[in-house]
Design a protein around this nucleic acid. Sequence first.
DNA 1: GTCTATATAATGATAGAC
DNA 2: GTCTATCATTATATAGAC
Lengths: 209, 209
Amino acid sequence: MLRTPTTSSARRTRDRILDAALELFNERGTAAVTTNHVAARAGISPGNLYYWFSDKDEIIRELYAGFAGAYEEMWSGDEADVMDVTPAELLRRLAAGAALSHRYAFLSRELLGLLHSDPVLAAEYAAVRERRTATFDALARRWRSAGVIRPLDDQGIADLIQALWVIAETWLALGELSGTSVESADGERLLRVVLEPYLLPARSEVTSR
Amino acid sequence: MLRTPTTSSARRTRDRILDAALELFNERGTAAVTTNHVAARAGISPGNLYYWFSDKDEIIRELYAGFAGAYEEMWSGDEADVMDVTPAELLRRLAAGAALSHRYAFLSRELLGLLHSDPVLAAEYAAVRERRTATFDALARRWRSAGVIRPLDDQGIADLIQALWVIAETWLALGELSGTSVESADGERLLRVVLEPYLLPARSEVTSR
DNA sequence: GTCTATATAATGATAGAC
DNA sequence: GTCTATCATTATATAGAC
C-alpha cells in the first residue's frame, strides 16, 4: 500500500528510502538491488521499508513519478507561452531534459524494460507521453503555419516529432557507452542535425549560436 | 564455463536452452526469469542447464552474440559492395534490422541496462558498435564526395550517423508502447525523415517510392 | 513509526548416481 | 550428457514488541 507520511520525521524516512533506492538503481540497476539493500543504504530496518512501500515496484513507480513530474514542469505554464517556443528554445529544453535524465540515469537505461513488465507503470508513462506528443505536435503545426519550418504533411510532422523524441530519450544512455564523457552540447547537436534542415532560413534561430 | 557441444544431441540441448531463454526473456524480461524457469521451459533439469552455462549472464551473452552475428551478416561482404550502398538501400537495411530486433525483443528493451551491469557484454557491444560506426561513417563520407548528400563537415556526418543509429535501435521498442501495431514501414519513415533532407536532389533515390 | 525476529519461499549452484 | 537430490544463501513479507 502506498502510505502517505503524516509527520515530518516520517517524510524524512520516506524520502530517504527513495533517495537510497535512486542511488542504488543508478549504480547497479534495478535487477541487482533488493529491498534489503535499499533499507541498509537508507539506514533503516527492512521491516520499516515495508511500512512505507509494498514492494520494489512501488518504489520504482514513485521514482518515475518524480521524474515525470519534474519533466512536466519544464513544459507547464500557459498554453500560449508554450506555443511561443522557438525551434532554438525547443532544442534547448529537450537537451536540458538531459540533466534530469542524468539524475534518473537508471530510467534512461531501463525504462523500456520496466514498462514491459509493469502495466501500472506503462499506463503512467503512456499518459505523460500522450500529453507531451500532443504539445509538440501542436507546436510543430503552428511553426508550419507561421512558415518557420518546411511545409511537411501531418505524417511528416508526427515522424519528425517522434524522431526528436527518440533521440532526446536515448542519446544520453547510449552516449555513456562510448566511454567518452557526455556533454549536454552533444545532445543538442544531435537534435539539431535532425531539426535544422526543416527550418526555413528567414525565421531560423537555431543555426545562430 | 562456456562449454562447446561435442555431439549433435548435445547441440540440440544447448540450443533448446537458448531458445527457451529467448522466449522467456522476450515474454517476461530477464529480471523475472531464473535459470530454473529456463530449464523447465527447455524441458531439462536445472542441473543440466549448469552443465552448459555457468549462469544467466552467460546465456544472455550468448543470445547477444547470436543477435550481433546476424546483424553483422547484413553488412558483411566485400568492402567495395558495402561502399556502393545507396541511401535508399541504407534505410532499407536499417529498417530490415527491425525484424532482427523483433526476434530479440528483450535486447531492444533491456540492452542499455544489461550493458551497464555486465562489463563483458559491454565490451562485446562496443566492438560491434565501433565496426558499424566506422562503416557508416566511411559510407557517408563517400556519399559526400560523390555529391549524394549535402557537404556536411565531419562532425555533422558523425552526428547524422549517430542520430540514425539511435532511431534504428530504439524505434521498435518505443513504438510497441504506443499500443498500435508497429510496422517496418514506420521505422523506415522515421529514418527517412532524418536522412532525406540531406540528400541532394539529382542523385536522391530515397524519395522515390 | 520503527525495530527485531522470524516464517516462507525461491534462487543459485553442486555432488554423485546413472 | 543428463538426472535426482540437496544445500547454503538470499529474498520477500509479516507479527509483535517498543
